[in-house]
Amino acid sequence: MRLWRWIAVTWMALAGGVALAGDDDAAAGLVVVELFTSQGCSSCPPADAFLHDLAGRDGVLALSLHVDYWDYIGWKDVFGQEKFSKRQKSYARVAGRRSVYTPQMVIQGQDHVVGNHPMDVSDLIAQHGAQDREDVTLRVRREDGEVVIRGAARVAEPMLVQLVQYSPREEVKIKKGENAGNRYVYANVARHWTRLGEWDGKSDLEMRAPLEQGLKAAVIVQRMDDHGIGPIAAAARVD
C-alpha cells in the first residue's frame, strides 16, 4: 500500500501547477518549497540533497535559504544571511511556535515539515498542487535586464510582492564545524531576496525590477496579516 501511495503522491506532485502565463511570460502556478538550512548543521546534508530532486520537479519552485544562527559553532555558512533567519522566525511566529530549527521546509508559506522527511514533503506538495489557486494570476517576463511583473486578483487583500534571485548550483568544501572535511553541492541557493512592494489586490499589479546577470529568478506574491507573512498566493519563474 505504501508503494502505491508513493506512486500516487509523486504523480500528483509532478502534475501540480497550472500555467497562468501568456506566450511571453514565465510559467506560474508553482508550489513554493523553502528549505531553511545551514552548512554548520550536521543533519542538513540529506535535506540539501533532497532539494536537488525537488528543484527538478515540474510545478515546484524549490529554494535553499541558508540561515546564519549556526555560524557560531565553528563554520560561517558562506550563503548564510540574517534576512533568511528572520524570515524563518516570522513563519514560526505566525504559526505560534517559539523556536526554529534546521533543516526545515515550509511549503507554500504555510505548512512546516522536517526537511529530511521526503514523503511528508511530497504529500504536502501534492496537496497544494491539487488546489485551485486562481484568486491571484501572475505574469512575468524578462526585458532589457529587468523583470516585468503583471498580476490580477479576485479578492482585495494585503499582499507582498517579492523577487528572489538564486544560483541553480553551488559547490562548497566545509573546512570547520560539524561537517568539516566534506564537500557539498547545493541546489537553487537564494542569493538575493528583495521586497518589491505591497499590493492591495484592488487594482492590477504592474512592477519592474532589475535582475542580476548569471542568476535565476522568480517572483513570489505572498499574503500578509498583522503577524507577518502568510500563505503564498502565486509564484512564477523568470525565464
Rank of each mutant, 00 (worst) to 15 (best):
A13M: 09
A13P: 01
A13V: 07
L14Y: 11
A15C: 09
G17S: 13
A19L: 03
A19P: 06
L20I: 02
D23G: 06
D23Q: 11
D23P: 13
D23E: 13
D24S: 13
D24R: 13
D25P: 01
D25M: 05
A26K: 07
A27Q: 12
A27P: 13
A27M: 09
G29R: 04
G29M: 01
L30Y: 14
V31S: 08
V33Y: 07
E34G: 09
T37M: 06
T37V: 03
T37F: 01
S38C: 09
S38F: 00
S38E: 03
Q39K: 05
G40L: 00
G40V: 11
C41M: 06
S42A: 15
S42M: 00
S43V: 07
S43P: 04
S43T: 15
C44N: 01
C44H: 03
P45D: 03
D48G: 02
A49D: 13
A49S: 07
A49R: 11
H52Y: 10
D53K: 14
D53F: 01
L54P: 08
L54I: 04
A55Q: 03
G56W: 13
R57N: 06
D58H: 14
V60A: 10
V60H: 11
L61G: 11
L61W: 04
A62E: 07
L63V: 03
L65N: 08
L65V: 02
V67N: 01
V67Y: 02
Y69M: 07
Y69W: 10
W70C: 07
Y72N: 11
I73E: 00
W75L: 12
W75R: 07
K76V: 15
K76H: 15
K76F: 12
D77P: 13
G80Q: 03
G80R: 03
Q81G: 09
K83M: 15
K83G: 02
K83C: 10
F84M: 09
F84W: 12
F84C: 08
F84T: 02
K86C: 00
R87Q: 14
Q88T: 08
Q88L: 08
K89N: 13
K89E: 15
S90N: 15
Y91Q: 07
Y91D: 02
R93Q: 14
R93D: 15
V94L: 10
G96N: 06
R97Q: 15
R97F: 12
R98D: 15
V100L: 11
Y101K: 05
T102S: 02
P103T: 04
P103C: 05
Q104W: 04
V106A: 08
Q108G: 03
Q108Y: 00
G109K: 10
Q110P: 01
D111K: 11
D111T: 08
D111W: 00
V114W: 05
V114S: 06
G115W: 13
G115V: 12
N116I: 01
P118W: 10
M119K: 05
I125K: 07
I125Y: 05
A126L: 01
Q127M: 06
Q127E: 13
Q127Y: 08
H128E: 14
H128A: 09
G129T: 13
